[in-house]
Design a protein around this nucleic acid. Sequence first.
DNA 1: ACCTCCCCCTGACAGC
DNA 2: TGCTGTCAGGGGGAGG
Length: 297
Amino acid sequence: MPELPEVEVVRAGLAPAMSGSVVRAVSVFDERALTRHLPGSADFAARLEGATVDAVVRRGKFLWMPLVGGSSAVVGHLGMSGQLLLRAPDAAPERHERVRLFIEHPRHGELAVVFADQRTFGSLAIDQLVPTPDARPAGYGSDAALIPTQVAHIARDPLDPAFDDDLFRAALRRRSSAIKRVLLDQNLISGVGNIYADESLWAARIHPETLASALSTVAVRRLLVEVRAVLQKALAEGGTSFDAQYVNVNGEAGYFAHSLNAYGQTGKPCARCGGEIRRDAFMNRSSHYCPRCQRRR
DNA sequence: ACCTCCCCCTGACAGC
DNA sequence: TGCTGTCAGGGGGAGG
């Protein structure tokens, strides 16, 4: 469940159950879920068993769980189809279940955290924590200015109070690629994927192929306002769900799919001007936009 | 340093 | 029914 709102829904669901929990046991059913943990599954389990989880933190689409007393964290990325689910410890295996953590919370008792992932682009790993360059909190969910090395290159997301709008605008000026491509570049702004890029550009009335460097200061400001509004609204509605892949920790779908104005609306009238929403091929994916009110410049 | 392309993998669905 | 092709919201690395 990939983009920022969906990942935040998961983070918020995991935090009350995982913060303060001790990991009692780890079951790995598919090594591919640990491809980013180079030492392998035995090492993964050995490091985790007996450890206490301090918090559940998110930056963009990355999650991590710092471990108490250590300088390490469990890093998770859901990829295209990953799920983190809270279950009873003896719950039947989920479809595509890859890893199960058996945890014990001081008040909630024993629980299972299930990592399920159909397409196996997601992963878990144990990683070292390093200080953030700006000494600001690394992500949402903890005040610690410590970030896993695997996440250190990922930009802050637009809902992060330490996100620097001026720095982002300056970066756009130096970019020769289309604004949509830049919105998807997690090294410049994180958390935005294909859906929310299309929705934000629609809301800001910017054509996805507009060169980033050609956007005026006012247009960039408008874009950031809309990116934030779209992400906040999606978050308030529990994220976007098209099918059973994109769910919260209880396996429930969000409602934002009903609020989409561009993504997946090919051929339908634009809610703003009545023009016909178009879909163009873009980077092995697609862009949805209204050719009438998102004019190319 | 930037930018583009290609890769990883599974399953749902459309069309023949 | 069964085959084939296409598509899907991810990030990383190679190579231009």
